[in-house]
Amino acid sequence: MKNYKIILCTFLLLPLMVLSQEKKKDSIVDKPSRPAFESATLIDNATDVLFNKNTLEVMMQHRFGEINGGTNDLAGFWGASNIRIALSYALHDRLTVGFGTTKEGRLQDFNWKVGLLRQTRSDKTPLNISYYGNFTIDARPGNRFYTKQDRYSYFHQIIFSRRFSPNVSFQIAPSISHYNTVESFMENDRFAIAFGGRAKISPQTSILLDYSQPITQFKNVTEADGSITNYNHPGISLGVEFGTSNHAFQLFITNFRGIVPQQNYMKTTNDFFNGDFLIGFNITRNYNF
């Protein structure tokens, strides 16, 4: 009789033991996957990366002059440069806010990023989805603007990313740029889509690709000397990234001279395939509090 009681208790407890093990297994497997990218920026576009709460990111972005900008420019190093210095702070694991100032145009941008969906290790959720946006003020002095609102521009982007493996990640990011005031041949809004990827070639080194394609088309402009200016060229950026847990350095070539995204999408006239590209770098450093 005693043996029967032991067997009966074992059968009664077995489902609870199995269920407990399955729950424990699911809780481990279904944790969020690691971010698809190392840095919050993929050369010219934002990524899915959101830092832990109370993390401060300090960023410096630099663009030298165009390589074909002159005969005595030393590949653009002696030409006019563009620089942005920015800070961003993680108020929550899924919410980051920041501020940056850019040399060209004296642009002051207030930006934010929100994590909407996170890829899980079990692939039950196969994608990361994030929203990035900014509000930018052109702070140049003078009477170039009729009203204060003419200085304002906005940018909104939804980022779909996936970490296919520890070494390969990819993202697609549709966006809309808006300027309150534009030239007569432009529209106030421009839709665009960006494609970006990262391939790790060593534990600290990755190859980066960032491609930005305008969808809304603007008319070509005929200049006084008869030349044609085209505002519909895609942005093409190729580079390498060296990263650690709290630091990332990206070195690249790009035809985007601007750094604030709506400036790139709306006002770029450089043709990458015509040699209108430049050397740039991004440096980030994170501080945890």
Rank of each mutant, 00 (worst) to 15 (best):
N230C: 03
R121T: 14
K219M: 06
A173E: 01
L50C: 07
I193G: 04
I279W: 07
F273H: 08
I201D: 01
G280R: 02
D123G: 06
S202Y: 14
A248Y: 11
L12I: 13
N72W: 03
E38G: 15
N220Q: 14
A199H: 07
Y146S: 15
E66T: 07
G76V: 00
A139L: 11
P126L: 02
R84P: 05
A192L: 01
F170R: 00
P234R: 09
R163L: 08
F110A: 13
G235W: 03
E38A: 15
L50S: 09
E104A: 15
N274K: 13
S153D: 11
N188A: 03
D276G: 10
Q171Y: 01
K31A: 12
I253E: 12
A86T: 02
L8Y: 05
Q213K: 13
A224D: 11
T229E: 14
G280L: 04
L87F: 13
P126C: 04
L42A: 00
N54Y: 15
G239T: 09
R106Q: 07
I7S: 11
T268E: 14
G100L: 02
Q61N: 13
N220I: 12
L251P: 00
Y265K: 10
Q21L: 14
S81A: 11
Q250D: 13
I85L: 08
A173R: 00
F155Q: 08
Q262E: 14
F249E: 02
A90P: 02
N143E: 10
N111E: 11
L56A: 08
S33A: 15
Y231D: 02
T47R: 03
A192V: 00
G69L: 08
Y231E: 12
F110L: 13
G70P: 00
D109I: 05
T269C: 10
T120G: 06
R34L: 14
S122W: 08
P166G: 10
S81G: 04
K5P: 01
T96D: 11
G197T: 03
P15K: 01
F272W: 09
V49W: 03
Q262L: 10
T216G: 04
E104V: 09
Y154E: 06
I159Y: 00
V182R: 01
F281Q: 09
V260D: 04
S245Q: 12
E241W: 00
L117N: 04
D271Q: 08
S169Y: 02
N286A: 10
F281L: 12
N288R: 15
